[in-house]
Simulated scan of single mutants.
Amino acid sequence: MLNTLATNITRFRQQKGMTMEELATEVGVTKQAISHYENGVRTPDSITLLAIAKAFGYSIDRLVTAHKVSFKLNYVNYREGMSLSMDQRTTVEELASNALANYMELEAIAKENRPFDNPLKDNDPIRTEHDAEKAAIQLRKRWKLGDGPLHNLVDVLEKKGIRIIKVKFGYAYTHEGLSGWVDQRKFPVIILNDRPQDICRIRFTLLHELGHLLLIMADDLTIDVVEKLCNAFAGAIMLPTDILVAEFGRNRTAISMPELQRIKQLYGISVYAIMVRARRANLITIDAYQKWKTNDFEDYTFGHYLGEEEPQRFLQMLYRCLSENKIGLDKAAQLAGRSEADFRNILLSKISMR
Rank of each mutant, 00 (worst) to 15 (best):
G81D: 08
N152E: 05
R79N: 10
F187N: 07
N77F: 10
S83R: 12
I165M: 04
E158G: 00
W181V: 11
M82K: 14
I191P: 01
R79E: 09
V167I: 07
Q197F: 03
G81W: 08
I109R: 01
N74G: 08
A136F: 08
R140K: 14
T128P: 04
R163L: 01
I191G: 00
G161P: 03
H151G: 02
R195E: 13
L73R: 05
H175I: 03
Q138H: 11
H151R: 12
K186D: 09
E112D: 13
D117A: 09
L153Y: 01
N193I: 02
S179Q: 11
V189Y: 03
I126T: 15
N102C: 14
I162Y: 00
N77A: 12
D183R: 15
R127W: 12
V167S: 05
T90D: 13
L120H: 06
K159P: 00
Q138P: 04
G161R: 01
K111C: 04
F71D: 08
E80M: 09
Y103W: 15
L139Y: 03
I162P: 00
N102G: 09
H175A: 12
A110Y: 04
D194Y: 01
A135E: 13
G148A: 12
R185E: 14
P188D: 03
K72W: 05
Q88A: 13
G81S: 07
R140N: 11
P188R: 04
A110N: 07
N98M: 12
K159F: 00
R195Q: 12
N74H: 09
L178F: 06
M82D: 14
M86G: 02
R195D: 07
H175T: 14
Q184E: 15
S85G: 15
A108P: 04
A135D: 11
D183V: 07
D117Y: 10
P119H: 05
R89C: 11
R140E: 11
F116H: 03
M104R: 15
K144E: 13
I165G: 03
G177W: 06
D87L: 10
W181Y: 15
A96V: 12
T90Y: 13
R79Q: 06
P188T: 08
E133D: 07
